[in-house]
Write a protein that binds this DNA or RNA. Structure first.
Lengths: 406, 406
DNA sequence: CATTTTAATTTACTAATCAAATTAAATCAC
DNA sequence: GTGATTTAATTTGATTAGTAAATTAAAATG
């Protein structure tokens, strides 16, 4: 009964602590690193000297206009050295694979996207398609594969990010695919896989609105409803490494039928297909059009004052508010980021929904969570994947015993 | 824009790491501490020697029958030294204050409970009542206040555990009460306050079914519905230090009216008052009886096959299943502990509900969370409070620079 | 140009931790 | 029994991560 080995968490090294402080606050002078990490200036000097030595960070030439007009020795800013590594971030969605090449500092170097008519593939075909897309992206950016230090990839579905095992994905024909291993074999590069919603959360944390928050959630609506949870500055992935499934929380007992086969799922009220399903019963929408086109027509009707269209969209908004409020009641995050493209804005991410949500959360006495809407393009997903790859590579580098001279 | 100071988390000291390993695995030989913490045996020897020196842990005399019949030098087990400190854990509920005196190792030394007709008090009166109850409990156990090193107290409501500030509690007349400060002033002892549901989670983690889990939730139904969330072995308290409000997650848009004034809250379907409200419309229950008695009568009717009573209880169970499933879909914990007294078992914590819940969670491919029902008496809450106090005291002790000789 | 101020570095030390050798206490094998 | 073997714990002697205090660096001030 007592032989179970509870793994006590690995303590972070001074080097990794300093490095992540630089990443978070970049550009930042040593003195601020010292106060943020609690290390003495002496230690910061010695650790940063080592990091500079290893080519991972660099000093920033002081730009004259930024000098604070204070006296004293001027601060020397440090930043991540972008040239240290290049990574690719990829996002595989319905009919498109998007690639962003980024440097170690997260700077976007090049973008590429590869449309395709095929929406669902075998594991082997996905491997092939992603590999081919990466090659094209590299060619396009005049880079070679050996310039890359790793590839991060996001795709929808239920994925264990630790093992890179895909339990299920709408883009894959099979279940239980060891895609990370397959891609690693094909590309010969370190591969980092995760659910796309988690990667959006990482993107927000690293480059977006989550920069200064420790506990926040990111809700991203695309085909499905995704959610990423950041607790204590760390992405929370649940017990099996799979993310949260906001889209399949129940907002109604015995409610509308969902794609997943269950009833009352949030997604069954706010997903594109749910709205169109309702529209089809009492509105005239051209049946032959794509679902994107149909959605646009539905929203146009809402704008022009169509009562039925408004009813449809309004319920979706109210249901979404309930779903969000539930997350808030359970989590009490400091910030909620609604992340998506313009279209969602019109029917979900609006004042009315946010107010309704706030009315449904329990009064704690503390301030309600801030709600922010972030309209990003498609590249955001890929940037999250790139950030994920950067993190993975950084972990690998900093785990090696850092030999710096005191 | 860049001057915000991101606090990088404090790294745990070797001493506190070893100490918590001992607490978790107690009794445990040094060699196992070494492998669990990753420290070398040499380090464990030196740290444990210091802890023994300080009287915080002790060697356990080898009991002959437990010797593993292996050869080699026998292992010497270590455990927390109970005599090091005594604490009181208190729980204030509707009509009762419960006290448990526990030693530093979490061993129950004495119990006491103090019933009262008053259900709601002013802050001053609560301070007085708790102080008086503690005195009686000490007297009863033949102890003096100076024997105690701290007091942990749990009460329902919205509480910031860090500051000990009570935003609101059903047991208090006023809002925004700095109860921790008041009690500290009155008792002259370190006081640790938290929401009672959180303390149940701590009790489960320390003494109960959560011992071997890193991510789990504890749902406790008393008057309201409480939930405690443990992530990565640590109680998650949300952004303001206040716990999760499972009872006020919405399970129905525009649903039943809740005590909190909102509609569709889980509590408005499964709380005692919700069931009795329904019962009152079509069942004959003696109006003069207490709600406990009425509940018993309602459950008796269920048992004897009353159709209406069954309908009422069955909906409650289904709603509860939905509420739980939502938590699982968001969190994916490895374990759910349903904690409460016998009564809940009959109408909420049963096979049917658990199956219904499992049907409402999304298939991840991984195993569904384990669900365990834990029937504890009233003392559980107080034990959680005691454990919380022990933790607080331990933190204080181990934060001081441990001067051990290498 | 000396003074003041702030940032960064150097120096000399301390504390935490480990590897390797040693000691301790048991069983096993004959 | 007695030495060989095995495993746990400790000791010893280094090494490393980190600090405090002194020093150097580079600016503004007056």
């Amino acid at each position: 009964m007592n032989s179970n080995p509870p793994i006590v968490d690995v303590r972070e090294t001074g080097t990794s602590l300093v490095f992540s402080a630089i990443r978070q606050m970049s550009p930042v002078p040593r003195i601020d690193i010292a106060s943020a990490t609690g290390f003495s200036p002496a230690t910061v000097t010695s650790i940063t000297a080592d990091l500079i030595n290893r080519g991972l960070i660099e000093e920033v030439a002081a730009s004259p206009q930024l000098v604070n007009a204070k006296r004293g020795r001027p601060r020397v800013n440090l930043k991540i050295r972008g040239a240290a590594h290049l990574v690719a971030g990829m996002k595989l969605s319905d009919k498109l694979a998007t690639v962003t090449i980024a440097d170690f500092d997260g700077k976007r170097i090049a973008d590429f996207s590869n449309p395709s008519d095929v929406t669902i593939r075998s594991a082997a075909q996905v491997t092939e398609f992603l590999s081919e897309t990466l090659s094209l992206a590299l060619e396009n950016a005049k880079l070679k594969q050996q310039n890359l230090s790793g590839v991060g990839i996001g795709l929808p579905g239920v994925i264990d990010a630790n093992t890179g095992h895909i339990f299920w994905s709408p883009t894959l024909l099979e279940r239980d695919v060891p895609l990370k291993k397959m891609l690693h074999g094909k590309l010969g590069l370190p591969v980092f896989l995760d659910n796309d919603a988690n990667l959006v959360a990482i993107a927000e944390q690293r480059f977006g609105l989550g920069k200064n928050a420790r506990n926040f959630i990111v809700v991203s609506v695309e085909q499905g409803v995704g959610m990423g949870i950041v607790i204590d500055g760390k992405l929370y992935r649940g017990n099996h490494g799979c993310g949260a499934e906001l889209g399949h929380t129940k907002v109604q007992l015995d409610g509308a039928l969902c794609r997943c086969g269950q009833r009352g799922c949030l997604e069954a009220y706010i997903g594109d297909y749910a709205l169109l399903r309702e529209a089809s019963t009492s509105l005239e929408l051209p049946a032959s059009a794509t679902s994107e086109e149909q959605m646009e027509q539905l929203l146009a009707k809402v704008k022009s004052g169509d009562v039925v269209a408004k009813t449809i969209v309004r319920r979706a908004g109210r249901m979404f508010a309930v779903g969000l409020a539930n997350v808030v009641n359970i989590f009490a995050p400091e910030l909620i980021i609604l992340s998506g493209e313009r279209m969602q804005h019109n029917y979900l991410f609006n004042e009315e929904m946010i107010n309704e949500m706030k009315k449904s959360i329990v009064q704690t006495g503390g301030p309600p969570p801030e709600v922010a809407v972030h309209e990003w393009g498609d590249q955001m997903w890929a940037m999250g994947a790139a950030a994920f790859a950067i993190d993975g590579i950084t972990d690998g580098i900093l785990r090696d015993t850092a030999s710096y001279v005191a």
